[in-house]
Structures are given as structure tokens and as C-alpha cells.
Design a protein around this nucleic acid. Sequence first.
DNA 1: AGGCCTCGAGTTCA
DNA 2: CTCGAGGCCT
Length: 671
Amino acid sequence: MSLMDSTKAEVLKLREELARHDYNYYVLDNPVIADAEYDALMARLRALEDAHPELVSSDSPTRRVGGAPSSRFAPVTHATPMLSLDNSYNEQDILAWHERVLKGLGGEHPEYIVEAKIDGLSCALTYENSVLKTAATRGDGVTGEDVTANARTIKAIPLRLRESVPGLVEIRGEVYMDRRDFETVNESELAEGREPFANPRNAAAGSLRQKDPSVTARRRLRFFAHSYGLFGEGSGGGPETHSSFIETCARWGLAASPVRKLCRSIDEVLGFYRQYDAGRDSLPYEIDGLVVKVNSLAQQKILGVTAKSPRWAIAFKYPARQATTTLLRVVHSVGRTGVITPRADLKPVQCGGVTISSATLHNYDEVARLDVREGDRVVIERAGEVIPKVVKALVSERGGTEKEIHPPEKCPSCGGPVTRDPEEVAYRCENPSCPTQVARGLIHFASRDAMDIEGLGEAAVEQLVQKGYVRDFADIYSLDILRLLTLDLFAEKRAENLLDAIGKSKKQPLSRLVFALGIRHVGEKTARNLAAHFKTMDKLAFAGTEELSRVADVGPVLAESIHGFFANEGAVRLIGRLREAGLNMAEPESVAAKGSPFEGKTVVFTGELKTLTRAQAQQKVRELGGRDSGSVSAKTSYVVAGGEAGSKLEKARKLGVTILTEEEFLRLAGQ
DNA sequence: AGGCCTCGAGTTCA
DNA sequence: CTCGAGGCCT
């Protein structure tokens, strides 16, 4: 064997090996070698090809990024039109479609095949004698764009089919991006000062329509086949069912939809839809629904197509988690701490099963980053969490009347000056007697985790403040029944209940009172630490910053904040009046729990508990000498998982933290 | 100085 | 629930 021949043999072997690894990784999702090994093989192949250019061929894995960047995309006319699917959003629509199918088939019951509808963009791949020739986007269905150079960089798209297929085959499928890869892409877009993509679909579309294929190559796009436009002669005359088409694709090295189910009846289809909905958030990619197809190609032919879409297939969509609506105006709302938060009033829109009419914009940096304006069309999202957020402003849809959003110069509530600490993101109203701040502060004071005064919520506080009956915390304790009855909100029974609740709150431990005061940076936990350390309000109020810093989790910033609060004359008077009103100013001695299973342990709760509330469970842990926390880390002793537990449970599993069920927790706590 | 870890604060709809 | 930021440990 000549030297040339042995080189050629190695090149062919490397290509075959690399193609197999691409297939394992991108199609089967099951890599069998480490990335570094893969890179080494690729480097070796590249070196050989560089040294022997005559051995280069277009189906070599090194040629995935090849050719000069094209400045525009040439039009491609599809062999047969690429139709879109009819959409349906509920079971009635599906049943109606099913009836039409039955009618079309003269009463014959078809088998259905159900696949995931991953939100990406359609792409048609033409293979000639097994070799990838062109790739085209859907375009308007008749003519698309030639994106061959970019499609070649997608490793789930074989450059050569794994079986010999004579003639022309046009495979159609979806190019899409995983959630994780989407996050990664957006991180680097942001890092490089570009606008992030609103969703994986846009990211996939933007990546496939890149001028420079090397950019596409970095984006880790994926592909799965879902139909075909041409099925060349010599390949057995085409499949008889959609299932067998998919099996053929698999043999050829093309990925199929990662979800696929053959259903004998429409009820089975509906059942699968419901069952699948539950798990869709934990999938690695976003799906916007399912596609239901008649499995038999003979039956498909009988049913035929309309001008727009085939009659034998329908998209069965889940309620969208994203929606587009109009940002009517921005409200600058003042919080308890004086922080001014921009909130978007939206034209009400359905999203994720509820009507959204408002969404937070978080802060003014975020407003600037989104470049969102009043009057803009905006994309909102209600993803894994419940809280909707504005993801993107549709800049191209602007008409010119949109108004830029700026932080207010005066507090919208009291008209006082608005300042911004250059170290902080937040803009604040510095006026401590700003009516909105006072009202929010009172609501906080009365809230369940603070003084727990039932009946003193937002509405009651608003009226009490408006009437001038309550201006500070101490005023709450001089309310009487006659005054309450002058308010619309209170009839006799309700007024009595409120006074009763106010009376009870006087006995709350010092820790709750300290928390209720709303000292900056002092939350529930820190308040408990302070109360446990100082035992009485007086000792706390007279403590210097040095003494304060000795308390756990208190550093210079907190010490200064706490000291500053009590140094204020108004605060001293307020505390005095609260004392006169008969409020408890001491922390009850905690009963040392000896030998309890939670002594010195940190417990985190997640999900919904059945027999007691989370607050009760947390208190139980504290009574038994344990600590409760909100976040899971390596230091967590136990995670108690209730129903519908989410990310914290995941993290606990990953870190190997002991997980308890509610029953196990109660058993431990009961001893 | 940097990297966890934790806490505080704000937030929507039914 | 998630972000930002303070505190503490290395």
C-alpha cells in the first residue's frame, strides 16, 4: 500500500468516526467520547486534509464551516409547497377536526401519530444520492432562502445519509435551540453588548440566517425531521405510514421529534396532550404544542390539502407562555422603603391561562436595557414562575408616538425629591413621611409575619390614613370603635374583630416588633438575631455600632442602619408611645431544646405542606433548636419536600442533601 | 480579593 | 421565586 493510500484510508476512517460521534451526540443525544477526544480527532483530520487538499470532499466534517460568507440568501423554490398547519387551542377544536377527518375517510377510523411541536423554524434539506445539496428556509411556503452554508454547520444534519439513497430526497424538519444553549447564546450576546434574543425560536431563526456560517456553527442548533417534500425514485416508492417514514429517517441518521406517540383513537390523543402538558416545563427545549397527523399516507392522500394547510394534520397548541400586547403607560410606584419601581400597565392579554394586565419593569436600568417606551408593542412572558415580565420591546413596530420612560424627578406620591445612590440601582423618595411610604409601612407592620393584626390590610390602612386617624404605628393602638364605625369598610362585627386583633398583637415577642418597625436591611431573620442578643428594646435602642456588629449576620452596613434608626428622635418618641400603649418590649426566653433531632440543623422547606403551614413548620424547627432557611446549599441538613416541590428539591438532590417527606418531618418533630 | 451563603424586598392573579 | 447586596469564610 502506498503512502498516499494509507493517508486516504485514515482520512476516510476519521470522517466516518467523526460522523458517528456527531450522530451519537446530536441525534441520539448519547455521546460516547469526551469532547477533548472528539476535538483531537477533528484536529488530526484537519491536518491531513490541509496537507493533502486533493483528499478534501464536501461531506467531510471539517467542511461544516465552509465556503465564503454569503452577503444575501439566494431564493429557492420548493419542489412542493411547504404548507403550514392549522392551529387549535382546545379539545373542541381537535374533536371538530377529528370529525372532518372521519367524514373525509368515509367513516374509517384512522391511526394518529402525535409529535412534539418544538418552536423553531422549518427547513427543507435536499439530498442528492445521499449527499446534502441544499438547505432552505420555509419562506412564504413556495420560495424560501438558501441557507445551505449555515445548515451544514448543524451537527444533527448529516452531510451524507447513512444509507445509500439514489436520486433526490427532500427532508423537512425543524431547526431549533435547546433552552440551555439559548441561555448561553444570550449571555454572550449581552456580554458583547448586543440585544439578547427574546426566545429560543428567535435565537434559532437569527442563528440560521447568519451571514457568517462560523457564527451559526457556534450556536449549537438542533434539527429533527418531520416530513418530506420529495422521496426519490429507487428508495422503494416512499413510505406507507408516517411512522415508517420516521424509522427510515432514523436509519439515515436524521433525528426525529423527541416525542412521538401512536394513538388508536382521538381520546388517546387528548389524554396524551393532558399528560404531556404537566411535564413540559422540565423538558430541555420549549414546545408550544403537539402536532397530530393521520399516520397512513394513503389516508393522507385521500384527505388532501387546502390552499394553506393539509387536512390530515393539525397543531394542538398549549396556551402560550408568551404574549404580545401594548404597554399603555408606566406607573411609578413607591414602596415601603421609598424605592420607586416602574410598573407597566398593559392592555390585558391572555398568557399562560390567565389575563395579564400589569407587569413589573423592576428598575430603571432594566427599562433602559429593554429600551421600552410607553405605547410600545411588547412581548411579555410568564414562564416557569408566575410573575409576568416584559421580555422585549418590538422596536420595529414603533409608529413614532411612543414616549421614553424616565425616572420621575419628584416622588409621585408626596412630590418630594427623588435621589439615587450611585452605588445602587434604585431611585428613592427620601421623605420619611411620604404618604405612600407611611401606608406601605403600616401594612407591613400589621402583616402576618410581623405583628399579625388580622383585618388591617391594604384597604383598611388606606381608609384609616385618608381619614387622618392613623399616621404612625402607635396610632393603631389608640383606635376606638366609634372612629372605626365612621369608615365605610367597618360594620360593628368587623370593627370589634380588628380591635381584638390589635389588642392581641401587643403581646408579640420583641423579634416581631423589631421586624415590624421596618428598619432598612432588617428582615425577619435579622430581627430575631437582634432580639435574641439584646432581649429588650432598650438595650437594642441604646446599643452602639460596635455592640451591634457582634450580632450574627450584622456587619458595618446593618450596624449603621440600625443605630441610625434609633438615633432619630422621632423613633425614640414612637417607641415610647408604643410602650405606653402596653406593647411587649422583651424577647421571651427560648426554651433550650436538648437532644432534639433538629438541634443545630438547618432545614429548608419547599412545596406545599398538607397538615401545617410553612410558617408553622419553620417555627417548629426553631423551637426544637434548629435553623430554617430559604435556600438550599451544601450546609443544609434537611430539605422537607411537600407537594409540587420545585427547584429547591432539584438542588437538594444534586447536592445530596437528605430529603424528608412531610410525614417524616412530622415524625421527627413529634419526638 | 473573591466566592459562597443567606437575607431582604418586590411582585401577579384568582 | 428571583435578583441584588451584605456578611463571612478562605
